[in-house]
């Protein structure tokens, strides 16, 4: 028998698979910790053991040794907010990741492409017309999609520097829709609608009910499934258009699917939280730094990171001051300098 040392070869894909899953589970645990501990945060003191106990009591027969009000705070007050923040955070992060891959442009996001502004105008219009949550969603999706399509449609007419052209047309379209929103504010009833629209535009989850969460769950789920099943194709599309086509991707169809699903999740989240900026730009960047640009790995990590981030920021919004700070204001205050830092640290852009 050959006495030479057998070289044990572990295929690289196995190691990569393991590290990919490892990173995923690390982020899943981080999210879980943030999610659970967020139930303890607020004016009403609840300890983490009590939170775990109250949750466990839903499944196992545990003797109730806590007041009913505690359960009400957890399930009726904190639960919808925390779920809402998780949904909105992951939705915006996924939409940003998908837009960036699809447009081969790390500078785009739901905010920059005009999707958020469009969805905002749609929602303001729906509030102006006194529509309910479903009406707000339909309107914000319609105008959000219109805004992205318009920005993209104009940008492909500009032959030079596609990446910059898309950013600029997105900003132009966004401004256009913002002025639409301003007009609606001007026209709206100053005692009832105007404060609703204004406060809602700042971005907040303070009024989120479990009913709202339940209603946006469906479009976010649909968008997420559509993005997930086309995740490999979107990955290939983040090369150049001609390359993706020559590798066998029907880029036209795929682009349509990806734009519709990203805009769907964006507008769904805008319809419950208002304008929460920067998440869709910041989180994909951060996720890409940690997990690399491969879209199938990047998408779930981006979603988890987005959810963790927004739950955390919403915790700050709830408790940092005696009055609640609007969530959108906070994400901008945190997001802008952090993004600047990321840009400066990036090697060669």
């Amino acid at each position: 028998m050959d006495l030479k040392m057998q070289h044990i070869h572990i295929p690289q894909w196995m190691i990569q698979g393991v590290t990919g899953n490892f990173v995923f589970f690390v982020f899943l645990s981080i999210f879980f910790v943030i999610f659970t501990s967020s139930f303890c945060i607020g004016n009403y003191d609840i300890s983490i053991t009590q939170v775990v106990k109250i949750f466990a009591a839903k499944i196992f027969p545990i003797q109730q040794d806590w007041p009913n009000s505690m359960e009400t705070v957890i399930f009726k007050v904190r639960m919808p907010r925390i779920l809402g923040a998780s949904l909105v955070g992951s939705a915006l992060a996924m939409a940003g990741t998908a837009y960036q891959a699809m447009f081969k442009n790390p500078l785009v996001s739901p905010d920059i492409l005009g999707a958020s502004s469009g969805a905002g105008t749609g929602a303001a219009l729906a509030i102006f017309l006194s529509f309910g949550i479903v009406g707000i969603q339909v309107m914000s999706f319609t105008l959000g999609l219109a805004a992205v399509m318009l920005a993209y449609g104009i940008s492909i007419k500009i032959p030079k520097d596609r990446a910059l052209a898309l950013v600029l047309t997105g900003i132009i379209v966004g401004t256009l829709f913002s002025s639409g929103t301003s007009l609606l504010k001007y026209l709206s009833d100053p005692y009832d609608e105007l404060p609703t629209i204004t406060f809602w535009l700042m971005g907040s989850l303070s009024t989120t009910s479990s009913h709202d969460v339940f209603i946006v769950l469906f479009p976010i789920l649909v968008g997420t499934i559509m993005l997930s099943i086309s995740r490999w194709q979107i990955n290939v599309m983040s090369l150049s258009e001609d390359e993706a086509k020559s590798l066998g991707v029907e880029t036209g169809k795929l682009r349509f699917v990806a734009i519709v699903s990203s805009t769907l999740v964006t507008s769904a989240s805008v319809s419950i939280s208002g304008m929460v900026g920067w998440v869709g730009l910041l989180i994909p960047h951060l996720a890409r730094m940690l997990a690399g640009p491969d879209f199938p790995t990047l998408l779930p990590i981006s979603a988890l990171l987005g959810a963790s981030y927004l739950v955390l920021v919403d915790d700050i919004a709830r408790c940092a001051a005696s009055v609640e700070i609007p969530l959108g204001v906070l994400t901008s205050i945190i997001g802008a300098p952090f993004f600047l830092l990321l840009l400066c640290r990036q090697k060669g852009g």
Partner: peptide
């Protein structure tokens, strides 16, 4: 390309078809 793919990721993309 815009994003920093590893070499093996680039090669695996050849399997798309």
């Amino acid at each position: 390309p815009t994003f920093q793919f590893t070499a093996i990721s680039m090669v695996v993309m050849g399997r798309t078809a």
